[in-house]
Write a protein that binds this DNA or RNA. Structure first.
Lengths: 313, 313
DNA sequence: GATCTGTCTCTTATTGGTAAAAACCAATGC
DNA sequence: GCATTGGTTTTTACCAATAAGAGACAGATC
């Protein structure tokens, strides 16, 4: 059976939406709600039906009005609104980065399925998508091997990242003065400055800003393979940051300053300076990541040794 | 139910293996056969049982002998030895490159499943893996869109390919004189010369040689993301060549000559010349590919126009 | 005493089936 | 006559079940 996370999330969103409406006001049309909530009309109707069942909307057909009179409505718990695929992803990343995973070990679909409480198909689908992140490998008819979040993984990742980012940064610097991207990067610069001002309290907002910044650079000369690769980066960093909180404020502050230098170089249109700033920033990001890798790769076919990660979490 | 393609292929291979043995000779041990055929002992035992059932091996337990006395054994048809995953891949590529597929059109899992005679899960699994080849895109809860084998796909593909290949070629040229790769490239050079000599009859052997050559270059400085990307190239070219036979001999001959120039440049260790030869070869490969793309991309959300592929096959 | 086979257990590949969600086709109202 | 809603059909997301294949553990054999 399909999960009804789509419905539950839509329902919660609808509650927020309705709470802005006065009592007795007309409910927007199904089509409108469908567009607003980002789901099909079928789901919208289910939401409205439930809303009606709880007395939040009244009347049928074309005359539905909001009845928000001080009612305390029960929302669906957050956990039930996240689709299975994402849940599997999260738990797998946790499992990999925090718990068991040793380079060279084999991954057992059935075991993960039991552990995560989903059918094997869900695990399979995830692993298949995850495969091209370069951390696991398939052995037909015999499961998967975890290749390890190792130093060479990080090095290889950053070699490509640097190639791509330099290429995009050059393209960005060469953009005509009239390009709308110049305004967007100016706006991002402001966001950086603002964040730096409140760094003490808001430092975990950096992750999102970081991603948006680098994607903007890449958009100067779009290439689907680069975008695709950047998904890997985003994923790795997203979970890496969640896991490794050590020195987070400090690290982010440094990164923001590097970004500002980088942005200013771009605004200055000087390719040499741009390359310098870009390289410097990536080098520091790389070093941070390397610090939390598990060291050596697995030997060919062999199970890895004890592995001293040096991580005193 | 799982398909038994593994067994059938192993059986056919075992027949070849046994036919080299004289009548009355001892059959190799299960372990040995397992290693030789690349399957588990479980499958080997099934093979032996079938072989025995058909009177090709005789005796049980530890004393099994071959009885090949002029028997005409029925092999399993080739088609039944190819695993479902591969079959889906082939048929999908056919479908995409030859038949229906128009940029912007939506892909229907259920329809493909019926058409290919497999369960939807098989299609799903394939599409998930295929996703990162950049030709399709997933719309959660609403199927997949075919983005089209367009000119911009080819251009984006080759932009990355050039970055990667130049980087690897430079690394190759900088290899120490003692590296075993120098011998391997020398050997590949010989193969090129040999193929050129018999180009009239053997021109379709180029595809394989091409792939091996570029992978050798890449192996000068291994990077899993580059390897991964090269899988895309290989796939595209594999099916592209099968589809577009136009001028094949001619094209391959040109490519071989370009390779030879490229190889000689590498052997000469002169980076400037290497880059020149590499760029020239890739440019010509790119132009060939572009000739068989479907022209424009799909507009945002719109279905593509009539599409004049200009392909007079 | 290492290799081989018989037996058993566990995992993977694949299939159908089912509820959720999307998409479609009228009919209706203003 | 266009947007809106009520029913219906199609498609996607998931699970449970099952045969094929891999791997482990003995006891048997030379």
């Amino acid at each position: 059976m399909k999960t009804d996370t789509v419905f539950k999330r839509a329902f919660n969103d609808a509650l927020d939406l309705v709470s802005d409406l006065a009592d007795g006001e007309q409910l927007p049309s199904e089509n409108r709600l469908s567009a607003r909530l980002g789901v099909s009309r079928t789901t919208v109707r289910k939401v409205i039906a439930t809303l009606a069942g709880r007395g939040i909307v009244d009347g049928g057909g074309r005359h539905r009005v909001v009845r928000s009179g001080g009612k305390q409505v029960r929302r669906f718990p957050e956990a039930e609104t996240v689709p299975m695929g994402e849940q599997v992803e999260r738990r797998f990343m946790e499992w990999m980065l925090r718990d068991n995973a040793r380079p060279g070990m084999t991954i057992n679909e059935l075991e993960l399925a039991r552990q995560f409480g989903v059918a094997t198909t869900g695990i399979r689908e995830f692993l298949n998508r995850f495969q091209h992140y370069g951390l696991i490998e398939k052995r037909p008819n015999a499961g998967w091997v975890f290749k390890g979040f190792t130093t060479s993984f990080a090095l290889e990742l950053f070699e490509i990242r640097e190639m791509f980012e330099l290429r995009s940064a050059r393209a960005f610097a060469a953009l005509p003065a009239g390009s709308p991207l110049w305004q967007r990067i100016e706006a991002l610069r402001q966001e950086h400055v603002a964040l730096l001002g409140e760094i003490e309290s808001r430092y975990h907002d950096f992750s999102d800003l970081d991603s948006r910044f680098h994607r903007l650079i890449n958009s100067a000369a779009p290439n689907r393979f680069i975008d695709d690769f950047y998904d890997i980066i985003t994923m790795i960093f997203h979970y890496h940051y969640q896991w490794n909180k050590h020195d987070e404020r400090q690290r982010n502050e440094v990164a923001i300053r590097e970004h500002l230098t980088y942005i200013d170089a771009l605004l200055g249109r000087n390719v040499t300076i741009v390359e310098l700033a870009c390289r410097a920033h990536l080098a520091s990001a790389r070093d941070t990541l390397i610090k939390s890798t598990s060291g050596q790769d697995a030997g060919p076919g062999a199970v890895a040794p004890g592995v001293a990660t040096g991580n005193a979490d």
